[in-house]
Design a binder for these strands. Structure first.
Length: 617
DNA sequence: CTAGGGTTAG
């Protein structure tokens, strides 16, 4: 055992941990063969395991070493390490090859608690329940049902599969759950939608190390409770808990969701100042944060500065470009990615198709969609079909969008119909719009967004009867419209405005500003675009209702609270309304202020009276 | 010193 410990600290092993290139590995390998270090079976095992664990990119090299330089039969340590490495790879099923290797080995190996711990993690990756159940059965057969390592793994596996009950069952069977096991259970609760229970566990734990803190912060961030994530992180700092790159990934993710650019910038500065290890994951989180907080230039600067990028990084950058209206750049980045030898996955194609869609590159988008199956072996999912509908629809080819839906190999999902309905709204197509709504409510009787869209189409035609009919239907069915909500960050503090809520301490000043805006805009001869007002009310009242949309309130607040020249950044939960969009353009001109709005679909950068979306919503 | 926490879309 002493011997193994020393080997783990062997300079060559440490070198592998910090380097990744295949070329260097080959050099090291040759050297070790020559000087005879490989004659030590322990070293050989540790060498392969280290490559597998620290250089997942070069997993095939560990494989090669096992098969072609096999002076020694791989031992359990090596095989377990391979299972572990593959459980985290993009091809987790290959773990089973090594599991079978253990079972069929000629040198009497039998799986141990590590084997099963890693194997259940493989099942967690695969999320194929049947596989998970059979591995569970196998480990019971081998007598590891009550092994603490295996139990932690099982909790993790069932969490990934969404079986919180099974997690509880396993957890209750644990004699004295240690920190690792408790962390797994906490993670499971957060993952399966019971963060509050996770927090309860967290609060009741007598000893908490920094991994537990990280799990809790991540738990909040992943379920969208970003504020609580940031609050807990702050507490973490105050308590002097160790902070590493994993903590920062969660912090950045929370900032991304809140659109809190200032806090995101602070986090970026923090991790540079504290020499936090820049991993691919952390870099990706940074790129995503800048992109989704409206600073796409900075996002790309970070992106190009990253030494190592994976498919997440590329997809994230492409998605960010698309979201910011830079569709062409997104498509170009896709070619660069392929040249770089990175294989796209299904998410990459979502980013790519969005890129095509926002700039109306219909043919290009269709070609890429076709290439998914033919060139990349990726079966398009319903999201991809939905984006194709969007692609045709945005470009005004509403009929083609409809016929595309009708040719889908699966039952069109609500999202596809919604995309069509948006196109109908944009191009004022009443007939297809009515048809789309019918299809939507067949599945989701209470889809408020769909009713509102159809109502808007009627309003465009000044068909108040139609508007009223929609309103009546909604009333009888009990459909409630989701209230608009906009947030804006001022001096690192996030202010939230919900439509109709006047509780903000500076609401009176905001009101005055809105009136000033209205005056300016009217002087310029602008007539409000009132078709976004849902109910048939008097024109004047309508303008008033429009004047109080949450996005406009947030912009007004930005005007009074941010220094001149500082861009106003607003994040909202719905798509920006047409009138607010027009008014924002004018504000950007009259008040000489840049405005960046991230709505639920994309970014709108308003400058000198123009918007970056150029009509492509 | 083979276990636990993290990134892309919807």
């Amino acid at each position: 055992m002493r011997c193994l410990t020393n080997i783990a600290k062997h300079p060559t092993i440490l070198l592998i941990q910090s380097r990744t290139t295949l070329k260097e590995l080959k050099q090291i390998h040759t050297q070790l063969l020559v000087n005879g270090t490989f004659n030590n079976p322990h070293f050989h095992a540790q060498f392969i395991a280290t490559i597998a664990l620290h250089n997942p990119i070069n997993l095939h090299y560990s494989n090669y070493l096992i098969h072609h330089h096999n002076h020694h039969k791989p031992n359990l340590f090596t095989l377990n390490s391979m299972i572990r490495a593959y459980s985290k790879s993009t091809t987790p099923h290959k773990s089973f090859y090594f599991y079978n290797n253990i079972l069929n080995s000629s040198n009497n190996l039998s799986p141990d608690n590590y084997t099963f711990n890693f194997l259940v993690r493989t099942c967690a990756q695969l999320t194929v329940r049947v596989t998970g159940f059979s591995v569970h059965a196998a480990l019971i057969k081998h007598g590891f049902e009550y092994d603490p390592h295996v139990q932690s793994g099982l909790i993790f596996m069932y969490a990934e599969m969404g079986c919180l009950n099974s997690c509880h069952v396993v957890f209750e069977g644990v004699q004295n759950p240690d920190l690792v096991c408790q962390t797994a259970m906490l993670h499971a609760c957060a993952k399966c939608g019971d963060v509050d229970f996770a927090r309860k566990m967290f609060d009741e734990m007598p000893h908490r190390d920094f991994v537990v803190w990280n799990a809790m912060v991540a738990g909040y961030a992943q379920c969208g409770r970003s504020r609580e994530a940031l609050d807990l992180f702050q507490l973490m700092q105050m308590e002097g808990v160790k902070i590493n790159e994993v903590s920062m990934v969660s912090v950045l993710s929370a900032c991304t969701q809140l659109g809190a650019l200032d806090q995101g910038r602070w986090a970026h500065a923090y991790l540079e100042k504290n020499n936090i290890r820049m991993t691919v994951t952390l870099g990706t989180a940074l790129v995503d944060m800048y992109a989704k907080c409206g600073n796409i230039d900075k996002a790309m600067e970070v992106f190009w500065g990253m030494k190592e990028k994976n498919v997440y990084t590329w997809s994230s950058a492409m998605g960010g470009l698309a979201m910011n209206g830079l569709g062409r750049e997104s498509v170009e980045l896709f070619s660069v990615m392929k040249k770089d030898g990175v294989h796209p996955n299904e998410v990459t194609f979502i980013s790519l198709l969005r890129g095509c869609s926002v700039v109306g590159m219909v043919e290009e988008g269709r070609n890429h969609f076709e290439s998914m199956r033919k060139l990349h072996g990726i079966e398009p999912q319903f999201e991809h079909y939905g984006l194709m509908v969007d692609l045709y629809g945005r470009a005004g080819r509403v009929e083609e969008a409809l016929s595309f839906i009708n040719r889908m190999p699966m039952k069109p999902h609500v999202g596809a119909w919604i995309a069509l309905l948006h196109a109908c709204r944009m191009y004022k197509n009443k007939e297809i719009g009515e048809f789309a709504l019918k299809k939507i409510v067949e599945v989701e009787a209470k889809n408020d967004g769909a009713y509102v869209l159809l109502s808007n189409i009627y309003a465009d035609y000044k068909n108040w009867e139609g508007v009223n009919k929609v309103r009546e239907t909604m009333k009888t069915k009990g459909v409630k419209k989701l209230p608009g909500c906009s947030v804006i960050e001022v001096d690192g503090e996030v202010h939230e405005f919900i439509v109709g809520d006047k509780s903000h301490p500076r609401y009176d000043e905001i009101e005055l500003k809105i009136e000033e805006i209205s005056r300016c805009v009217r002087l310029a001869g602008y007539v409000a675009n009132t078709s976004n007002v849902f109910f048939d009310i008097e024109e004047e009242e309508k303008e008033d209702a429009l004047g109080r949309h949450s996005e406009k309130v947030a912009i007004a607040f930005g005007l009074i609270s941010l220094k001149e020249g500082v861009p106003i950044r607003v994040i909202m939960n719905l798509r920006i309304c047409w009138d607010c969009h027009d008014v924002a353009k004018m504000i950007s001109k009259f008040f000489k202020r840049e405005i960046v709005v991230r709505d639920r679909n994309r970014f709108h950068h308003f400058k000198d009276g123009e918007c970056s979306c150029k009509g492509y919503w």
